[in-house]
Design a protein around this nucleic acid. Structure first.
Lengths: 360, 360
DNA sequence: CTGTTAGCGCATTCAG
DNA sequence: CTGAATGCGCTAACAG
C-alpha cells in the first residue's frame, strides 16, 4: 500500500482531460481498510456492532481519503431523507424567523436536519419549493403559507407526504396546523388599556381583509362591549401595517382638537404604533399621558423605542416547536387526529401604556 | 386495464398490514402507459425526442398516477443535484435576506433550486449545515459566515465542492468572495455631511472589534483628513449597534451644553441613528437643523422614520447575484481566477440630513 | 463479528 | 423513435 498522496493515480494517463479526482466512495474506503463494503457501512451507521480494531482501521481510511458519505445514495437506499423542509412566506418578518428557530430546536433534538425555503409572498415560488421538497423526498414539510388557496399542499398531503401548517389552521380533520389566537390578542391589548382607565379607544390597523387584523379587531370589540357603554371604540382602517401608515395615523390624531382625541390607541402592529408615537410626540402629545398606545407583534424594535412600546407577543419559537412536534408525529405515524393547536399571545407591558420612560 | 381508482390493488390481500400505498415510480408509469421505462424518462427529461402520441399517453399516465419524479434517485444517477445551498449567518438581519433574494434571482434564471440554512451566529450549526450540503451533493455552496475560522469550509472546498463567500472576502487566491466596501461607505457618509457644511462631526458606533465598524470609521477619518483641519471628528464607541445604544448616544449629546454639541452625526448603523434621533427630538434638538444625522445599512424602517434617515445602502440583492454568478462559474468549471468582488455602497439622501420633513 | 448480494428509482448507453 | 441493460453509492438482509 503506497503511503503517498492518495489523490493521484499512478497509472500514467495519456488522456488530455483534467485529472478529475473522483470523490472517494465507500468501496474505496473498504479497499483501503482491507474490509468489505458492508463493514464500512456498519462503522458509519452502526459503530457498536463492529470490533474496535476494525473500527479504527476503517476510521483511519475514511480520514486519509477524506471520505464524505453520499446522503443522496443513502436516502435512495433507505427510502427517505433525514430532513424536513420549511417553506416560509416571508423571511423578512422576524416572526417567521422565530418560528423557524423553534422548528430547528426540535429538529436538532430529534437529529433531523432542517432546510429552509423563502417563498417571498409569491404563490408560484411557494408551490415550486413545495414541489422541490416533495421530489427530494424529505420526511415532511412545514408550511407557513401565504393567504391563498393551498391546492398544491393538499395534493402533496394526499400523496402521503406529511405537511403541517404554521400560522394557518390547516384543513379541518385532514391536516394539522399551529396558530395563535389573534382575537384573544386583540382582546388582551384592549383590556389592558381599559384596565388602565382609558375610555375613548381607537383601533388602527388594516387592511381588514387580513384575517389576523380582522380577528384582532373582533377581540378589541369584545373587550369594549364587556364594558357596556363605558368605553368607546373607534376604527381607523389603514392600507398597510407599516411605520409609514403609523405616521399618518399619528398625524390624523394630532390634527384633531384635543378633546376629540382618543385616550388609548390599539394598534394592530408595532410598526404602526411606532409611527403613531413618533408623530404624536413630535406634535407635543404625551404618550402615554395623553394617549396610551399598545402595539402588536413584539417586534425587535418595540422594546428599544424612544418610548418602549407595550405590545402583544406571539410565541413564535413555541409555535415552531409545536408545529415540528406535530410533523414528527405524522412522520412517525404516531396515531393522532389532525388538529389545530391554538397558542396564546402574551401581553408585554412597557412604557407606552404605563408611563415610566427612560427620561425618568 | 381497469379504470377504477389506481390506488387500490385488486389482488385480495389477506395480510393484516396497512395497505400502504407505495408512491408510484417510473416503472408504474411505463406499465400503465404501455411503454418502456426509458421512454418515460425521455418524456420527462427530453420531451422533444419522443413522438407526440407517446408523449400524451405517458403524460396521462403520470397525471392519473400522481407520479412525482424522485429527485434523490435522479441525483444519484446523474451524479449531482440541481441545487445550491446557502448557509446564512443571521436570518434576522434583513441585509442577508436581501442577499438571499439576489441569489435566488440568479438561481431561478439558471433553473437551479436554492436551499437555505440559518446558522444563527453559531459556528457549530454553520459547520453542521455545510456538512449537510456537502453530503447532499449540492452543486455548490454559498456561505455568509460568522466571524470565525472557516476551516470546515476550506476542507469542503479542497474536496472539489465549490464554495463562495458572501460578506467575506474569501481566501486569497483560493476562493471567491463578494464584499462591500465598508471604508468607502464611511467615507461617503462623512463626505455627505461635510458637503452640507457640517464641521464638528461625531462618529458613533461599535464595538470597533467589528471589522465593518472599524472600516467605516477609517473611511470617515479619511474624509475628515481631506479637509485639513476645517472639520473635526470625534469618536464615540458604543457597545452595540442597536436602537437602545442610539438612545444613549442621543441622550449624551442632549446633555451637553449646546455649543459643545456636534453639528453632524455619522452613525455606524440605522438603528443607532434612529435611537439618537428619537432622543434628540424629544430633547428639543432639531434634526437636521441643529444636527444632521446619517445612518448606515438602509434598514427598512429608516425610510419610514419620523424623520426619514439618510443612510448608506448596501447592495444586498446585487451582492447575492454576484456571489451566485461566481458560484455558477465554479460549478461549471468556467476557467476563472479566484477573486474577491468588492461592491460599492450607495448614498441615500433623506430628510435627516437635508431638512425636508413630512411636516412641511 | 464480517463478507456477499440484491435492490432503492432513475439516467443513459446501445441495439433494434 | 423505442426498449433492454447497466450502474450511480449505499443499506439491509443474510450467510458465513
Amino acid at each position: 500500500m503506497s503511503t503517498d498522496t492518495p489523490s493521484r493515480r499512478s497509472t500514467g494517463e495519456t488522456a488530455p482531460s483534467v485529472n478529475k479526482r473522483r470523490a472517494p466512495v465507500m468501496a474505496d474506503v473498504a479497499r483501503r481498510a482491507g474490509v468489505s463494503l458492508g463493514t464500512v457501512s456498519n462503522v458509519i451507521n452502526n459503530p457498536g456492532v463492529v470490533a474496535e480494531r476494525t473500527l479504527r482501521k476503517v476510521q483511519d481510511a475514511i480520514d486519509e481519503l477524506g471520505f464524505v458519505p453520499n446522503q443522496v445514495a443513502r436516502s435512495l437506499a433507505v427510502g427517505h431523507a433525514n430532513t424536513i423542509g420549511f417553506v416560509i412566506v416571508d423571511l423578512a418578518n422576524s416572526y417567521f424567523v422565530d418560528i423557524a428557530r423553534g422548528v430547528e430546536e426540535l429538529a436538532d433534538e430529534s437529529g433531523v436536519r432542517l432546510l429552509l425555503a423563502n417563498s417571498d409572498v409569491d404563490l408560484a415560488k411557494q408551490d415550486s419549493y413545495l414541489e422541490l421538497f416533495e421530489e427530494s423526498r424529505v420526511s415532511g414539510i412545514l408550511l407557513a403559507p401565504l393567504d391563498a388557496p393551498l391546492t398544491r399542499a393538499e395534493q402533496i398531503r394526499r400523496r402521503q407526504m406529511p405537511v403541517v401548517h404554521v400560522n394557518w389552521p390547516g384543513v379541518d380533520g385532514e391536516s394539522c396546523g399551529v396558530v395563535v389566537d389573534e382575537e384573544l390578542g386583540g382582546y388582551t391589548a384592549t383590556r389592558h388599556l381599559i384596565e388602565l382607565g382609558r375610555q375613548r379607544l381607537l383601533f388602527a390597523g388594516g387592511p381588514l381583509s387580513l384575517s389576523a387584523v380582522a380577528s384582532r379587531l373582533t377581540g378589541a370589540r369584545r373587550a369594549v362591549e364587556e364594558e357596556q357603554g363605558r368605553v368607546t371604540l373607534e376604527l381607523l382602517e389603514t392600507d398597510r401595517l407599516t411605520v409609514a401608515a403609523g405616521l399618518a395615523v399619528g398625524r390624523g390624531i394630532a390634527n384633531r382638537p384635543p378633546d376629540e382625541r382618543p385616550d388609548g390607541l390599539v394598534s394592530a402592529a408595532d410598526a404602526l404604533a411606532s409611527g403613531a408615537i413618533q408623530t404624536m410626540i413630535y406634535s407635543g402629545i404625551e404618550v402615554p399621558g395623553d394617549i396610551a398606545v399598545i402595539g402588536y407583534d413584539n417586534n425587535h424594535f418595540a422594546a428599544d423605542h424612544v418610548i418602549p412600546i407595550s405590545t402583544i407577543g406571539q410565541p413564535g419559537v413555541d409555535m415552531g416547536r409545536a408545529a415540528a412536534k406535530l410533523l414528527f408525529e405524522e412522520i412517525t405515524r404516531v396515531p393522532h387526529v389532525h388538529r389545530t393547536i391554538t397558542m396564546n399571545p402574551e401581553l408585554i407591558v412597557r412604557e407606552s401604556t404605563t408611563g415610566r420612560t427612560w427620561t425618568d
